[in-house]
Amino acid sequence: MKLFVTDIDGTLTDGNRVPQEVVEACRRLRTLGWRFMIATGRIWASARPFAEAIGADLPSIVYDGARVLQDGGAHPLSYREWKIPSERAGRVLELGWESSMLIQAYGDEEVTCRPGDEVTSGFFRRINVPVRPDLSAPRLGFDPYRIIFYGNPSEARELGERIRESLEGVEVTLAGEGFLDILPAGVSKGAAFRAFRTSARLKPEAIVAAGDHLNDIDLLLEADLAVTFRDAPPEVRRAAHLVLPPASSMGFLELCRFLEREESKPFFSKGRQEQRRGCPLCLGGQPPEIKREV
């Protein structure tokens, strides 16, 4: 078994659908023995169409690693999950309450936001996810899987540093430009992947992981072949073996073709993986910020 774990936004696609060329490429890879797994910050309702499009038959890592869910028909089946205790979640909310950022607290396939937050309400209602716009004070009556602050990128970074310095027992990461994600202690996409592999007793002959942002780094470090894209932050590129054109230029399709041509085999040789991190092979052009020092 060969395992391909991929992020969605900025990786698999830069839009709201998987390009047909990518769908076909994933189908061909499945005939070559590859199995697909999604690892995303999205909730299950939003991630499911993408998992189905690429034929991912393994549980999906969603909520940025706070949940591992298996398709169960009308409602997903929980494989593993982690939550933030409500008292600690309230402290997180207090630290960001006076900011200008939108706030989203995630329950079981439902989202709580502030009254009047039409951005959050509109987005989730379009995908038939229940929204509770009743967050009128910095406290919750449930243990959330995660809390997101969304808005100005500089404010997101500053708030993230403040939460990290002021509060123990949570993980702080940037899940995208202006997306500050607060997760249960010890949770990440990589941690969820490790937990899944252990409980499922999976021993793939090869692991490929693809992602484009800071919340993907821990997952990339689990892979024999770690892949990112030219528009990824420098920290992410330093964790990669391979840098491809961005999703907007069909970089994921290039990755599928790279695997089809079996050019990835050298990466699966014992002892080669760590040697190549930090000086990634770049297809379609060398990003100027990366110095290829060996």
Rank of each mutant, 00 (worst) to 15 (best):
L283V: 13
R42Q: 07
S78C: 14
L255G: 01
E52V: 15
E177R: 11
E52H: 13
R48N: 10
E118M: 09
S86W: 14
D181E: 12
I84F: 10
R146H: 07
R272N: 14
F267A: 03
V170P: 08
T13G: 01
R125Q: 12
P204A: 03
T228N: 01
A105I: 02
P233D: 03
R126V: 10
D212Y: 04
S78I: 15
P76D: 04
R48D: 02
T31N: 13
G186Q: 01
A156Q: 05
L159S: 00
L77F: 12
V129N: 00
T31W: 11
V294G: 15
F267R: 04
F149T: 06
E98M: 12
L244D: 00
P115S: 03
E260H: 10
D231K: 03
G116P: 07
G186K: 02
D216R: 08
P234T: 15
K291L: 10
R80Y: 08
S199R: 06
G15A: 06
Q273S: 15
R164M: 10
L253E: 09
S269A: 08
L253M: 09
T120Y: 05
D14M: 04
T120W: 06
I43F: 07
V131F: 05
S46M: 14
N128W: 14
Y79D: 11
A25P: 06
S136E: 11
A74G: 08
T13S: 08
A223M: 06
P115R: 03
A156M: 00
L225A: 04
R292L: 15
L183D: 02
P287M: 07
C256A: 13
F142A: 06
S60H: 02
R277G: 04
Y145Q: 05
R139G: 11
N128D: 13
G41P: 09
L77P: 14
F123I: 08
D57A: 14
V5H: 00
K270E: 07
L220D: 00
S154D: 14
T40H: 03
F179R: 10
R237T: 09
M1L: 13
F4A: 04
L253F: 12
D134K: 06
D57P: 08
L281K: 10
A156C: 06
R230A: 14
F267Q: 02
Y145C: 03
S188W: 02
I147S: 08
A53V: 10
G122D: 06
W97E: 07
H75C: 13
D216L: 08
E262R: 12
G178S: 01
E274A: 10
G176V: 11
A45I: 09
S269W: 06
R139L: 10
R292F: 15
L174P: 01
F36E: 00
F193H: 04
V208L: 09
R28Q: 12
V243H: 00
R88G: 09
R132E: 02
I43M: 12
G73F: 11
R276K: 14
V23I: 14
E155M: 01
F193T: 02
A51Q: 10
H213M: 08
A47I: 14
F179S: 06
H213P: 05
C26R: 08
V172T: 10
T31R: 15
A56S: 12
A137V: 15
L77I: 15
L95C: 10
L214K: 15
A89W: 03
V68N: 06
A210L: 02
A74I: 12
A247I: 05
A66L: 08
W44M: 12
